[in-house]
């Protein structure tokens, strides 16, 4: 008697178990693939593009992102360093990228 088989007991069909966190950013219609906002991406790209060994100065960041406020740049920098994309070097105003891509 094999009638005891349980076809898919206890297995709910989640299509995307890992996506719950991405839902926090709803309202941003054009998120890049890496999950950063466009502003965060711009900041990250500028820091990535800096060839100096000590990294990019916050002052340079400000000069190149004149459409952003100092507060929003700081916010992006904070976020990026929290995520591990960038880190401060010689002082808290210099940042380098960890991303090798």
């Amino acid at each position: 008697n094999k009638s005891h088989s349980q076809p898919s007991a206890g297995r709910a069909s989640f299509s995307n178990p890992g996506m719950s966190e991405a839902g926090n950013f709803s309202g941003n219609s054009f998120l890049p693939a890496n999950g950063l906002t466009p502003a965060q991406n711009q900041v990250l790209n500028l820091i990535k593009a800096c060839p100096r060994p000590e990294g990019l100065n916050f002052h340079d960041l400000k000069n190149q992102l004149h459409h952003m406020t100092v507060a929003s740049i700081k916010q992006a920098v904070d976020f990026l360093s929290n995520e591990g994309h960038i880190y401060s070097t010689v002082d808290d105003d210099h940042f380098k990228s960890t991303d090798a891509e």
Binding site: N82, E83, G84, Y87, K96
Partner: peptide
């Protein structure tokens, strides 16, 4: 300079933790 290395190591750890 130790500070820079430490910051970098910490950042890489955070990044790695994110990517798990």
């Amino acid at each position: 300079l130790v500070r820079i290395q430490r910051n970098k190591a910490a950042a890489l750890l955070r990044l790695a933790a994110r990517n798990v």
